[in-house]
């Protein structure tokens, strides 16, 4: 019997060691697997390379992981955020490495890792500082930059619904990088608001098929980043 459900966040994170590369879903706060990230802080792995669109905002989630000094390197498109000074402070002190990747290239590099693509060319970043040190060739009359896949040891993803086979459905724009990250990691770990019976997610509505998912843990009421930011503002 296939049963990808695990009973606790701690169990879901089993095997994440120092120096691991981790995909963390999210665009702003939508899709952020905040409870999994908090459990990762408690779990203690350090020297991590994190691939995520942003570098965390406010007092919780990825910003807290960074503040705890666990992240050696961030690979992202947009680390500047409104309330997040955790990344900025460590970056200014030279205590965290940064690789900036154009957002579409970031997403495509992740997908490529999941889809068995060895490398690809794209016109995005051609002629800009982000193409420095990368091979550029002309295809179809356009300069195109060689990009390589960006896989990970683990992916942490938030879904709305999951079943024991690992099929996933998301909520609105919260799916963002989830489907590509689920494909691209050696071990994909999902927190879902609800775990449902097999068949309860209409096969037409499965966004990430279970073949891309390894572990599923139910988190019925995930923390909201904007509420945490508001609470902090009121408290200070």
């Amino acid at each position: 019997m296939i049963d990808k459900r695990v009973a606790s966040l701690n169990e879901a994170l089993a095997g994440i060691g120092d120096g691991a590369t981790i995909h963390i879903n999210g665009f702003g706060e939508s899709g952020c697997p905040t409870e999994l990230v908090h459990a990762l802080i408690d779990q203690g792995a350090k020297g991590l390379t994190v691939v995520s669109n942003n570098a965390g905002d406010g007092p919780i989630g990825l910003a807290a992981l960074i503040r705890a000094g666990r992240v050696r390197k961030m690979i992202c498109s947009f680390p500047r955020t409104q309330y997040g000074d955790a990344f900025r402070e460590l970056y200014a002190k030279g205590e965290i490495e940064l690789e900036i990747v154009a957002q579409g290239t970031l997403s495509e590099r992740i997908r490529a890792a999941g889809a068995g693509i060895g490398a690809f060319y794209t016109p995005t970043t051609a002629g800009t500082p982000l193409a420095r040190g990368k091979e550029t060739r002309k295809f179809g009359g356009r300069d195109q930059v060689l990009e390589t896949p960006l896989g990970a040891d683990f992916a942490l993803v938030k879904a709305e619904r999951a079943d024991r086979w690992g099929n996933l459905a998301y909520n609105k724009s919260a799916r963002n990088f989830g489907p590509s990250m689920c494909m691209a990691a050696e071990t994909t770990i999902v927190q879902a608001r609800e775990i449902v019976e097999l068949g309860a997610i209409d096969p037409e509505h499965v966004v990430t098929p279970g073949i891309f998912v390894d572990r599923v843990v139910e988190v019925p009421n995930p923390i909201s980043e904007h509420e945490a930011i508001q609470k902090e503002a009121v408290g200070s």
Binding site: S77, F78, P79, R80, F87, R88, Y91, A92, L98, I100, V101, A102, Q103, G104, T105, P123, T124, T125, A126, T128, L130
Partner: peptide, 16 residues
């Protein structure tokens, strides 16, 4: 110098 670089989707939109 010292600013945190951040590109988001600008380079993709510009060429695409």
């Amino acid at each position: 110098p010292g600013a945190v670089p951040a590109v988001g989707g600008a380079m993709d939109l510009a060429v695409g």
